[in-house]
Nucleic acid binder design. Structure first.
Length: 472
RNA sequence: GGCCCUAUCGUCUAACGGUUAGGACAACGGGUUUUCAAUCCGUUAAUCCGGGUUCGAUUCCCGGUAGGGCUACCA
């Protein structure tokens, strides 16, 4: 627990799915642990039983597993500080709370919530900041667990500290107040529990979002009261929604990270995109594998300002990572989406060059873009046109194509030979489209489709000729 | 209201105080593709404003403006 090993943690609350903003914080913590051969802990902070959503823990673990962010200690991975679920560690918080009480750094809060609300409203109407410590009771009751336990700020001072990302930070004495350590229901607050756990678990680098900057003076005063040296603080900037300037949140459309899995994004691409949204190792390389990311990662190069999410760039990143995939894997993934009647490996490259994520395959199928490969298309004769060429001319061009293709041997009926043969005819015409377009249309029945050569190869000589014949 | 923080192309970002301010996404244009897509080439496009410090400021300091966060018996 107190060896010098770099230890980071991801400490989500089980209040639903986790979105990309949360995951990036987890990623940075994970990268730092892996880079330093340290430990990465997953800790569940379920101290607010009202907000808890059933099934969240499993969902969170599934999300991390999809991205390959493996934890060394945490749920389903016991370690020296198990359990890693805060609601199962209540006795530990109580022990620390009692230490603070004994040292005179904590006392029971005698007020009801309504009374405190009145103090707050009064301060509000006087346009003054509300500070509980201004109402600190002179003789608080002894803490028996039925009342909230508050931290007692002993010295009002300016707090100065260092953050690996933000550098020197400071806050005036207004940032210090008597905040709740243990709630009336016996559960600790985040403000207290995370400190106890980070100490107990030997966390060396606390990586978390910038919403916690303003409460850091409070945290620091607890470390001081406990006589424990605080860990390094690594505060990450927010991720903003693509529209608007608000921090990305579930409210404004932040998606469950697992939705991206469903849409067919590669975990490596998501990792790469996320890492670079708010971090840059310098240089112009942008596509990084997981291992390269670990190697290049540096806490000091995390950005301070918020970054807007971009689906466009994520799609591009995904495509780049798909290109890195072995051919067999691409084939397997694409084939998976194809119905049995369409499972033709020759379709794979055609599909691959048109998609940026796997679910695009599904969309292509739904749009019927691939139907003609296994179903003779209905030819809309009114569309059998090309520029100002008469339909008679077009039909005769198709006949020309039939004659040409008949000369191509069946075993040599591949796109290269077909192209050579067809192009020889096409070049003689005013424009190549006079023959190529009608052929393509006759084979696919579509205005837009892959080139006629590859279609012909996939259909095979017989099918190709019969479709052309049919149109004539 | 109070406290804290941030500020480079539309977006993500790079630049020991000295660069024609670089790259990527997007957009646009072109080559190649019958078309779309893909690919290749190219173009447009930024240091928020105002003061200082300095021979020299995107970079350091101050002010303004804009944006963000916190201000719970939530995390």
């Amino acid at each position: 627990m107190s060896d010098n090993k770099i230890t980071t943690r991801f400490a989500p609350s089980p209040t639903g799915f986790i979105h990309v903003g949360n995951i990036r914080t987890a990623l940075y913590a994970w990268l730092w642990a892996r880079k330093n051969n340290g430990a990465f802990i997953l800790r569940i902070e379920d101290t607010d039983k009202e907000r808890e959503v059933a099934g969240s823990i499993e969902h969170i673990m599934k999300s991390l597993r999809w991205l390959g962010l493996d934890w060394d200690f945490g749920p389903e991975k016991d370690g020296p500080n198990a359990p890693y679920i805060q609601s199962q560690r209540l006795d530990i918080y109580k022990k620390y709370a009692e230490i603070l009480v004994k040292k005179g750094f904590a006392y029971a809060d005698p007020y009801t919530e309504e009374e405190i609300e009145k103090f707050r409203q009064k301060a509000d109407s006087e346009k003054k900041p509300f500070l509980y410590r201004e109402h600190r009771p002179e003789n608080p009751p002894t803490w028996d667990g039925t009342k909230p336990l508050r931290f007692k700020v002993s010295e009002l001072k300016k707090t100065v500290w260092n953050d690996i990302v933000w550098g020197g930070l400071s806050a005036g004495p207004e940032a210090l107040d008597d905040f709740i350590l243990i709630k009336g229901d016996g559960y600790p607050t985040y403000n207290f529990a995370h400190i106890v756990d980070d100490i107990e678990m030997g966390v060396t680098h606390v990586v978390r979002g910038q919403e916690f900057i303003s409460s850091t003076p409070k945290f620091l005063s607890v470390y001081e009261a406990l006589g424990v040296k605080p860990p390094f603080f690594v505060t990450t900037p927010p991720i903003m929604g693509a529209t608007g300037t608000k921090k990305l949140s579930k409210r404004d459309g932040a998606k469950d990270i697992l939705d991206y899995e469903k849409e067919g994004y590669l975990p490596e691409a998501m990792l790469n995109y996320l890492a670079f949204l708010g971090f840059n190792p310098g240089g112009e390389k942008e596509v990084y594998t997981r291992e390269e990311l670990i190697k290049a990662f540096d806490l000091g190069k995390i950005q301070r300002s918020g970054a807007k999410w971009s689906d466009d760039k994520l799609d591009w990143m995904n495509k780049e990572h798909m290109k890195l995939l072995p051919k067999e894997e691409v084939e397997k993934n694409i084939l998976e989406y194809l119905p049995d009647s369409m499972k033709n490996k020759k379709l794979v490259p055609i599909i691959f060059e048109r998609i940026s994520k796997w679910c695009d395959v599904k969309e292509m199928i739904e749009r019927g873009e691939l139907d003609f490969f296994y179903k003779v298309p209905d030819i809309d004769k009114t569309k059998l046109v090309y520029k100002n060429i008469s339909q008679e001319k077009i039909i005769s061009n198709i006949k020309l194509a039939i004659e040409t293709l008949e000369k191509v041997a069946e075993e040599k009926f591949d796109k290269e030979n077909i192209k050579t043969a067809l192009m020889a005819v096409a070049e003689k015409l005013e424009s190549r489209g006079e023959v190529l377009h009608p052929v393509r249309f006759a084979l696919s029945g579509l205005d837009r489709s892959p080139d006629p050569f590859i279609i012909a190869e996939i259909l095979g000589k017989n099918e190709t000729l019969s479709r052309l014949q049919k149109v004539v």
